[in-house]
Amino acid sequence: MLLRELEYVKPDSVDEALEWLGRLSDAGLLAGGQSLINVLKMRIGGYQTLIDISKLEDLKRIEMVGQGIRIGAGVTYDELLHSPAISLYRPLLQEVALRIADPQVRNRGTVGGNCCYNDPTCHLPPYLTAIGATFEARGPKATRMILARDFFVSYYQTALAPGEMLVGVYVPIAKRGSGDGFRAMSVGGTDVLNIVAGASTVTLKEDGTIGDVAVVVTGVAEHPLRLDGVESQLVGSSPEPSDVRSLFSALDTARFDPVDDVHASAEYRLKMAPIFVRRALEQALDNARRGLRD
């Protein structure tokens, strides 16, 4: 509760924030702070200077851009929940956001923070990986777009270079015949702490077969894993529930290397991961089939 002495600066624009980020040697961005402030309280890390970007209007917009929705990195979970565009074009994102912590945290925690923190328990990295989001990173000189599968590098690490900041996330609009799924295993009670999570998106063709699918699991590796093997087996099929079950009961988990900690053993995570990723796919299929019917 008693933080180390800090310096604080509150820039008026993203450009100014970037300038501070470049100029100061040990500076970090303070957005919602719902993880960073805890780190500072425990004095286990953090920065000498905090650059407060929580009020930057440029980071707070949700807007339609082409075939996607651009969500400003500073948009809070609560703002996601209240966005008509999200509820129309990517409704599952709101279901996912509603499961993050509690109202107080949702009022301050941000989309950008969740992605940049990239803790294995975070909700957004697996989901955004599954739906193929793109991350807009601004550096002192240029802006670049990073695919989700490249953005989440390792525990607490992203593809952002020093001096770069995440300014927005592009979420594609859900196509007709597509559906999303997200299922997390929380330990310690409902929506308390996710030890593993599965996320999926499915796009069905008019004949009901799978045209496109992404299946992502988190909590078993240093970043969300796309299960390419499963995906390729699914494409072109119209799986029955029993097909999906057998696909996942035979899942190759050789790439899985979950942590073992006070929340759950590695062995349990390993057992749970296929179940929750399967359930995410089942939910995505249900949603997609419902979409196709309606």
Binding site: G33, N38, K41, L50, Q104, V105, N107
Partner: peptide
């Protein structure tokens, strides 16, 4: 509503 221990 926010937790006042989670902001400066």
């Amino acid at each position: 509503v926010v937790k006042s221990c989670m902001m400066l």
